[in-house]
């Protein structure tokens, strides 16, 4: 009776495709394990099939191919933190990875698992959305297809994958000249904390004109899933980086929070805490700005 759980250990994508062929509601994919093992216990899951993706070496890589960065689904957050490619091209993703869980969790948890788990407060997801990544998936037939991250993550622990589909890769564009990115979060303590609020920002600043040409602002922990905030982005695009822009940015963020969690008891706190993220984002992206000079710090 205790042996009702099957365990598959595909060593390649081909084998994985075969394993997925019979996948059903009781098929569970495991990579780092940091989410699934808790789920097995909490949901009292004693039978079914666990497919372990960790043995698929070909899913563990970070590579740059011309203007795209490909991250294998098995890549851990620790590996992402140390990736020169990501440090150079996707600082927000590195910043998010650094703030996920503890050292042990980052050593185990993977990018593929984090997306599939689709937790509302997940730290990597806002950064991935801001980066505009595509998620590559494979089905039981061994066919590959791409979807926007936004389509893959439904939120509140749900993803849009069918039972016979698996995330194999995350594809991020190299953002190019003038782009910068930031990730920040507010939790209930300094380290090892679930985000009460998190935010990723990607901006393109034209160094010659000083104007922001592109802005993506993603907020997490404000609903079932992280989302891009149009009303905040509009405040940034086409603007010069000034003290007053920071103020407008902050105001827009507060407005977004008022809309997103109207009536929630967490609103008064989050509309204040978002100012911290706003300030951190600005100083991180645009250097120590003038508006700080008024303080006696």
């Amino acid at each position: 009776m205790m042996n009702e759980m099957n365990f598959k250990m595909p060593a390649s994508l081909n084998e994985l495709a075969l394993n997925l062929d019979n996948a059903d509601e009781k098929t569970y994919l495991i990579s780092g394990g940091t989410d699934l093992i808790i789920k097995l216990r909490e949901k009292k899951i004693y039978s079914g099939t666990i497919i372990d993706l960790k043995g698929i070496q070909e899913l563990n890589y970070i590579r740059q191919i011309e203007q795209t960065i490909c991250i294998g689904a098995n890549t851990t957050f620790t590996e992402m933190i140390h990736s020169e490619i990501l440090i150079k091209n996707a600082p927000c993703l590195v910043q998010a990875a650094e703030q996920i869980g503890s050292t042990q969790i980052r050593n185990a948890a993977t990018i593929g698992g984090n997306i599939a788990n689709a937790f509302a407060g997940a730290d990597a997801i806002p950064a991935l959305i801001a980066m505009g990544v595509k998620v590559k998936m494979m089905n039981a037939k061994g066919e590959f297809f791409l979807k926007d991250i936004d389509e893959v993550v439904i939120g509140s622990g749900k993803n849009s994958l069918h039972k016979d589909e698996v995330i194999t890769e995350v594809i991020a564009p190299v953002l190019g000249h003038g782009y910068k990115s930031f990730f920040g979060k507010v939790g209930s303590r300094e380290r090892v904390t679930i985000a009460k609020l998190n935010m990723a920002v990607v901006v393109k600043n034209n160094h010659e004109t000083g104007v922001i040409e592109d802005a993506r602002v993603v907020l997490g922990s404000l609903g079932p899933k992280a989302f891009r905030s149009d009303l905040v982005e509009i405040e940034l695009v086409g603007k010069y980086i000034t003290d007053s822009l920071q103020t407008e940015f902050e105001k827009a963020l507060i407005t977004q929070i008022d809309i997103s969690i109207a009536g929630r008891s967490s609103r008064p706190y989050k509309r204040e805490a978002v100012k911290a993220l706003s300030e951190d984002a600005f100083s991180n992206l645009f250097g120590s700005p003038a508006w700080r000079c008024n303080n006696e710090k």
Binding site: V186, R189, E190, Y269, E272, A273, K275, A276, E279
Partner: peptide, 9 residues
């Protein structure tokens, strides 16, 4: 105290 986040160190 971070007066924006309310976090105390």
């Amino acid at each position: 105290v971070d007066t924006l986040t309310g976090l105390v160190k």
